[in-house]
Computed example of a mutant assay.
Amino acid sequence: MQVVIGRIGRAHGIRGELNVDIRTDEPERRFAPGSSVICGSRTLTIASARHHSGRLVVAFKEIPDRNAAEAIHGTILEAVVDPHDVPVDPDEFYDHQLVGLQARVGDVVVGAVTGIIHGPHQDTLTVRIDEREVFVPFVTEIVPVVDVVGGFVTINEIEGLLDPARAETSE
């Protein structure tokens, strides 16, 4: 099973180092020297990882220079995890744990989680409701309960979130 752990940003210097936008709450674990990550269709080995000016700067053994680094700019990084593995933080989840969970408003099942979009500032759940796909910001104020064992997430109904026809309009 693969989980998203980051996205390759700009090249850093001339020796093949890259800025990485972190998409995991376990960067020390996922970007530890010697560990492997999947970058598109290839596997890369972490040579080093350090923080510089609030960013994670990573060097890969297979990326020797700036030209090679620039060639993978924008690529998603993934790690292979055991399907039964869970994040250390109880408030964090792997995508595969969320996909398929019932989406509830109160005790009423309204749909099912079909995917997760990893944005630069927050994640978004995609929820299938009837024949529509709805995007739900994955923040505690809107999704206060995630019960993987129970098989559901609870969504706080905000006018127009799950039913766009009921959205407020300013006129």
Rank of each mutant, 00 (worst) to 15 (best):
A79I: 02
I72N: 09
T75W: 10
I72E: 12
A68D: 07
G74S: 04
V81E: 09
A69G: 07
I76K: 12
H96N: 10
E78M: 14
P83M: 04
D91C: 00
L77M: 03
I72H: 07
F93I: 01
E78C: 13
F93D: 01
E92Y: 06
L77P: 03
D89H: 00
V80E: 15
H73M: 09
P83V: 07
D82K: 04
V88A: 15
D82Q: 07
V88C: 09
Y94W: 02
H73F: 12
A79L: 05
D95R: 08
D89M: 01
V80G: 15
E78F: 14
A79E: 01
D91M: 00
D82V: 08
R66M: 13
N67R: 14
D91R: 06
E70V: 11
P83N: 06
L77T: 06
A71K: 12
P90M: 02
A71W: 07
V80M: 12
A69D: 10
P83A: 04
N67S: 10
T75R: 15
F93C: 00
A69L: 01
V88M: 12
H96F: 12
P87S: 13
P90G: 05
R66C: 11
V80Y: 14
D89A: 03
A69Y: 06
P90F: 02
D95P: 03
A68K: 03
D89R: 04
I72P: 08
A68C: 05
V80K: 12
P87E: 11
D89W: 05
I76Q: 11
I72W: 08
P83C: 01
E70Y: 11
A71Y: 08
R66L: 10
R66D: 08
R66T: 11
E70C: 14
H96K: 08
E92S: 13
D89C: 06
L77Y: 00
V80F: 14
P90Y: 03
G74A: 06
D85L: 15
G74R: 06
F93V: 00
D89N: 02
F93G: 00
A79T: 07
D89Q: 03
Y94I: 03
L77W: 00
P83D: 09
H96D: 08
D85V: 10
D95W: 09
H96L: 09
N67H: 13
V88K: 12
A71C: 09
E92M: 08
T75D: 10
